[in-house]
Design a protein around this nucleic acid. Structure first.
Lengths: 349, 349
DNA sequence: TTGTATGCGTTATCAG
DNA sequence: CTGATAACGCATACAA
C-alpha cells in the first residue's frame, strides 16, 4: 500500500510537501501541487487515518453511547432515527461514528472509558439520560467533550444537551385531551429512572392540576413494555371503579401495546377511550387507528447533538448549551371528543 | 496523560517491558509485572489505542455499512436488533464498531472507501444485499475482509455471508397458508433490488406452483412502504374480481401497514383475510391481531456476522463460509383456516 | 528475563 | 515555497 513517502519519491519532493498538499496548504506552488496530486492517483494513494490521528491527536470520530442492549426498549425505532440524524450532522463535518456497546451497565461504562482513555474518539454523544448516571459523572470529571440527548438529571447548566421540552409537550397534550372533554385521564409511562419519563409525568400532572382535576395515583402506570406485565397494568386501569376515558402514553411503541390490549378487551379507540402518545414513529401512522402523537423530531435531536459535540470538540472554549428541539402535536385518529357519561355530567352542571 | 514511558520510568524498567506487561507476555517475571502494574494504576495509565493500532496495523474495529439512511426503511427495527447481535459478537472478542453513513449511495460508498483505505477498520459487515452492488465488487477486488448479512447477488460461493434460507421460509409459510385452505394467496413484497425480496418471492412462487395453484401476476405487489402508494396497492388487490383470502407479506412493518389499510376498508383479519409475514419484531407481537410471522432470528444474524468477520480478520486463510441461521414460524393470530367461498368450492369438488 | 533501537505513516517545527 | 527532522505512543527484532 502506497504511503506518503512513495508519493514523495514519485513526485520528487519531500514527504512533508506531500503532507502539505493533502492539507491543501496555500504556501505550496500550484505547480508542485499538481505534480504531487498526479503522483497520488497514479499510486492510488489514500492517507492513513490512524497515522494521521496519532500525529494530530484527533480521530475525527465521535463515540455514541446507548443504554444496555439487553433492554427490550432497544428495539425502539428511536434508535435508528437518532443515529440517522447524528450521521447527518457528523457527515457534514467529516466525522465518523464509533460505538462500543455492552450487555450490562458496567460493560458499557468500561467501553466508554476505553474509548476515552484510549483516545479512540474526540467526543461523545450519550443517547439517554437517567437518574444518577455514573457515566455522566465520569465524563464530567474527566472534562471530556460530550453532549447528552435528553435532559441531564443534574448539573443541567453545566452539561451541553439537546432535548425537547417534554414537560411542556406532556402538559400540552394532556390539555388537548382535557379540551376534548376528558376528565379521567391516565398516564402510562416507562421506566422512571429515565429523565424523559419524569418530565412527561410532571407535565401531565401540571395539566391535570391546572384544570382542577384530581391527580390520582391509580391513574399512573409504569411499564417497560406492554407485554405480560403491561397487559395487567392496562387491565387494572380499566377495572377501576372510575376507569379513564383517555390515556397519555409515553411512547408510540407502548401505545401500540396498549392498543392491542384494548382491542383484546373489546374497548374501542377512540370511541371508548382516547390515546395520545409521543415520538411519531413511522409505525404510529400505520397503526390502527393512526396515533395522535407528539412528534419530537428525533432526527433533529440527533443532528443537533452531532453539530454541538463537534463544535465543542473544535472550539473547547465554547460555552455550555441547552438546545431545545421543537415538537409538534400531530393530530390523527386515536383521540377524539369525549362523548360518554362525563359529558352528561357537563350538561348537568 | 500518562504514556508508556512514564510508567516505565516510575517502575524503573524499559518501555518495552511495560509494553510486554500490557500484552501479558509470559517471558516477564511476575515480580516486575507486579511492579509495572502498580505503576500503571498509580498513574491511571491506559494504553493509547491509536498508537497501538499504528504499530500493530490493526484497529480492533469493524466497520458496519447500512444502506442509504434517507431510505424510509431505515426506521425498520431490523437495524437496532442486528446491531445488538453484532455488538454481542464483537464485544466478546474486544472489537468495537465503526460506522460511516451517508445520504446517497455514492456517499456511503465513499465512506467505506475511506475506512478501508484509511485503515480505520480491520473488516466490514455489510447489512444488506442488493442487485449489482458496487460496494461488494470493490471489497471483493480489494480482497478486504468482509461479510454480508443476506445472500450475495453474485459470487455467492466466494463471499462469506450469513443469511436465512429465505426461499424455504417463504415456501413454508405459503404452504402453511395453503394447508389452512387458502387458494387465493397474494404476495406483498418490498424493493425487488434486495436479494431478500427476490428469495421470498421465489419461495412463494414455488409453493404456489407445487400446490397446483395459479401464479398470478396481479397477486404480486411491491411497495417500499405502505403509505400513500401502498394504500393503493392493497386497495387494488382487493378490487380484483377474485380478491386474495390470504397474504404473504415480506416484513412485519409492512404487515402493520397492510393491517391498517384493511381495517380502514373494513376487512377483518384473520376472519376475512389471513396474513403471515417475516421478521418477528417486537411490534408483531403487540400488533392487533398479533402477527403470525417467521422469526428470522435477527440477533443471531448479527452475532454470527460479527463472529465470522473476526474469524476472517484473525485467520485470513479461513475459507469462505455460508452461514444459515435457522428461522421459526411463529403462529399467532393473523392467519387462520379459510372459511369463505373457496371452502364451498372444496366441498363441490 | 529485560533493555535498545527502529519502525508504523503522518504532521509540525524549524531552517533555508 | 520547500526540505530535514523530530515527535505522536506503542510494538517488536535483536542484543545482552
Amino acid at each position: 500500500m502506497a504511503t506518503i513517502k512513495d508519493v514523495a519519491k514519485l513526485a520528487k519532493v519531500a514527504p512533508s510537501t506531500v503532507s502539505r498538499v493533502i492539507a491543501n496548504n496555500p504556501r505550496i506552488s500550484d505547480k508542485t501541487k499538481e505534480r504531487v496530486r498526479k503522483a497520488m492517483d497514479e499510486l492510488g494513494y489514500h492517507p492513513n487515518f490512524i497515522a494521521r490521528s496519532l500525529a494530530n491527536q484527533s480521530t475525527q470520530a465521535i463515540g455514541v453511547v446507548i443504554h444496555s442492549s439487553t433492554d427490550k426498549a432497544f428495539q425502539n425505532p428511536f434508535f435508528p432515527e437518532v443515529i440517522r440524524g447524528i450521521s447527518k450532522g457528523a457527515h457534514q463535518k467529516h466525522y465518523a461514528l464509533h460505538m462500543s456497546t455492552g450487555e450490562t451497565e458496567e460493560e458499557i461504562y468500561e467501553g466508554v472509558v476505553q474509548m476515552v482513555e484510549g483516545k479512540r474518539v474526540d467526543g461523545i454523544i450519550v443517547l439517554y439520560s437517567k437518574v444518577d448516571d455514573k457515566l455522566t459523572s465520569y465524563l464530567k470529571d474527566k472534562n471530556f467533550p460530550f453532549v447528552i440527548v435528553g435532559k441531564p438529571f443534574k448539573d443541567m447548566e453545566r452539561i451541553t444537551h439537546v432535548d425537547n421540552d417534554n414537560y411542556r409537550a406532556a402538559k400540552e397534550v394532556t390539555e388537548h385531551l382535557i379540551s376534548l372533554g376528558h376528565k379521567e385521564i391516565a398516564f402510562v409511562g416507562g421506566n422512571l429512572n429515565f429523565v424523559v419519563t419524569i418530565d412527561r409525568l410532571l407535565g401531565y400532572e401540571k395539566a391535570i392540576r391546572n384544570a382542577g382535576l384530581e391527580y390520582r395515583d391509580d391513574y399512573i402506570v409504569h411499564e417497560e413494555f406492554l407485554e405480560e406485565g403491561g397487559q395487567e397494568a392496562v387491565k387494572e386501569l380499566f377495572s377501576l371503579k372510575l376507569p379513564p376515558t383517555a390515556l397519555v402514553v409515553a411512547d408510540d411503541l407502548m401505545a401500540l401495546g396498549v392498543l392491542n390490549k384494548l382491542s383484546a378487551m373489546k374497548i374501542q379507540v377512540p370511541s371508548d377511550v382516547s390515546i395520545v402518545s409521543f415520538n411519531n414513529f413511522l409505525l404510529s401512522e400505520i397503526a390502527f387507528p393512526p396515533l395522535t402523537t407528539v412528534d419530537i423530531n428525533i432526527y433533529m435531536l440527533g443532528c443537533e447533538a452531532a453539530r454541538h459535540i463537534i463544535q465543542q470538540i473544535e472550539e473547547p472554549s465554547e460555552p455550555v448549551k441547552r438546545v431545545i428541539v421543537p415538537y409538534e402535536l400531530v393530530i390523527r385518529q386515536s383521540a377524539k371528543k369525549h362523548a360518554g357519561p362525563a359529558r352528561i355530567l357537563d350538561l348537568e352542571a
